[in-house]
């Protein structure tokens, strides 16, 4: 039987790339589209569901629709980013607090809503893998910026939340991927290596606890470079 991946946020350039790349890897793909993206043309055989990053209920409804076709899923990939355009204001200008609240609801709580809603299906699947597409903007250690607050400040807390999920769920056999897309490459190429990263086994040796990316949570970019939290 094919492995099943749910891609929440499949309707943008990065998401569509993920859909195609997972099909190439012979996965059964479910595309989670945002409201308004229903017209997006998807490759044949892809089941699509609609879910809104801002609504927990819509994620649960999407999971219920998926459950009608698939008894379980192996992997969830969440690709939500409502900050594609850089915000240049700084603390000395007029901060857009409403944009910051929306960015947090969308980029941080959106993935958590989706993961929570699909958790029962993941529990029933074999793969048990949770993946997020994020960006290096999320790193507290690496941030050299003085602007783009909505992106930075909304994505950093997702790193915390996924670390906490990892702590709670890794003992149950779950594995995790946090992937920094290549924002400088443009939308079509930003997610070029994501599917490869999400599907590869990252334990170096079965018994290695120190040198295994599966037993600690890491943030890596498209060049496989580890980004400090």
């Amino acid at each position: 039987m094919k492995k099943v991946v749910m891609i929440a946020g499949a309707g943008d350039a990065v998401g569509l790339r993920l859909v195609k790349d997972f099909l190439k890897k012979d996965y059964a793909v479910i595309a989670g589209l945002l409201t308004g993206q229903e017209g997006v043309s998807l490759p044949e055989g892809v089941l699509s569901v609609t879910l809104d990053p801002l609504s927990h209920q819509s994620a649960k409804d999407a999971a219920a629709a998926v459950a009608e076709k698939y008894p379980g899923i192996d992997m969830i990939v969440v690709n939500y980013d409502n900050c594609p355009v850089r915000e240049n204001w700084t603390i000395l200008d007029e901060p857009d607090f409403e944009a910051m609240k929306l960015a947090y609801e969308y980029n941080c709580l959106g993935p958590l809503r989706a993961i929570d809603a699909f958790r029962p299906l993941l529990d029933k699947g074999e793969g048990k893998r949770i993946c997020c597409v994020t960006s290096a903007d999320s790193s507290n250690n690496a941030a050299r910026d003085i602007a783009n607050y909505p992106s930075h400040v909304s994505k950093a807390p997702l790193n915390m939340a996924i670390n906490q999920l990892f702590n709670g769920m890794r003992p149950d056999g779950y594995t995790f991927r946090m992937y920094c897309k290549d924002v400088s490459a443009g939308p079509a190429k930003a997610g070029e290596y994501a599917a490869e990263y999400f599907t590869r086994n990252r334990s170096n040796e079965p018994e290695s606890y120190k040198h295994s990316d599966e037993n600690r949570l890491v943030l890596r970019d498209w060049m496989n470079i580890e980004i400090p939290w």
Partner: peptide, 14 residues
């Protein structure tokens, strides 16, 4: 975590 990030950006500028 979000606070620490906001401070990082403010620190870089101020």
């Amino acid at each position: 975590t979000a606070l620490n990030m906001a401070l990082r950006l403010m620190f870089n500028q101020l």
